[in-house]
Design a protein around this nucleic acid. Sequence first.
DNA 1: TTGGCTGAGTCTGTCAAGCGGACTTATCCT
DNA 2: AGGATAAGTCCGCTTGACAGACTCAGCCAA
Lengths: 162, 162
Amino acid sequence: MSAQVPEAMNWSTENCTISRTMQILGDKWTFHVLRELFVGVRRFEDIRVRAGIPRQVLTERLAALIERGLLRRHPYRLPGQRERYEYRLTQAGLDLYPVLVAMIQWGDQYLPLDGGPPIVPRHRDCGEQVSVVLRCEAGHEPEAREVAIRPGPTAKPRPLAS
Amino acid sequence: MSAQVPEAMNWSTENCTISRTMQILGDKWTFHVLRELFVGVRRFEDIRVRAGIPRQVLTERLAALIERGLLRRHPYRLPGQRERYEYRLTQAGLDLYPVLVAMIQWGDQYLPLDGGPPIVPRHRDCGEQVSVVLRCEAGHEPEAREVAIRPGPTAKPRPLAS
DNA sequence: TTGGCTGAGTCTGTCAAGCGGACTTATCCT
DNA sequence: AGGATAAGTCCGCTTGACAGACTCAGCCAA
């Protein structure tokens, strides 16, 4: 069973959706930045201090996230101060919520703290806790074990490296 | 509206579930490794070639994932070869499926390829496409915009740095 | 009008990590 | 004995992270 070649070996990883997504998110700091924005912290200094990011790295990550369309700069002005910019999630950024929630859910299960979770995603309307579920188009809600990743229409055969 | 201090500023990031989860997953290569395991590729060389990871980095990441309990080593023997080890997901590893699926879903929406997706998560039983949905305990299925991350029982007040 | 404060950066030197390529080890087959 | 192969280890180079100092623009108070 373990000896036969897995089907995936026939397919290229070149255009894989996960790779392409990780080119945007796959970095130690990017998720910390996103977390701050998701909890409502939007200003450079606040993000930097709370997330503990080196300034230079934060500058660079914010620029990258803006360029990728996950954030936009938004002017604001505190009374008696000059105009500055804060960073806000675009719709594309907001739509990462399921990823965040899935990560929180996993962390709560496998890295639990005594006394419960420090952060909880909640439905604004009703206040109940929000979680993420897998669901197929036929309406089933499969366990992880019942899901398989299959090639789609643009799967490319793998260049046969010897 | 944007001037008032966001509630999150009162809370420490120190024990945040996202941070703790990112300490395990938050690395350029870890998700690539997990992807290979999720699609069924389990052997060192296969993972290395498909994911394009430097050997040394792969060695180190596999060890870390084993130590964190997401993988285990499993002996196998090809006919006419000596015994070797392959890497398999534990239940903890498998339970990252929602994170993976959420990332694929986001990528398919915001980084689409002409002609459709290269990989598709499917329900093994019925073959239908699997996606991830947000759901609250009252049974609503909120949009991203209707979800908020709130402090939980172990939220810690932030040490007031001046 | 000068001087200080503040948020949001930029600059600089150090040091760890990633990287490709060569080398190693253990076992099997011929 | 010689060769093949999977799974590493070793080496030197380069890239990026990092801490800490410096800059810049606009506002305020004296």
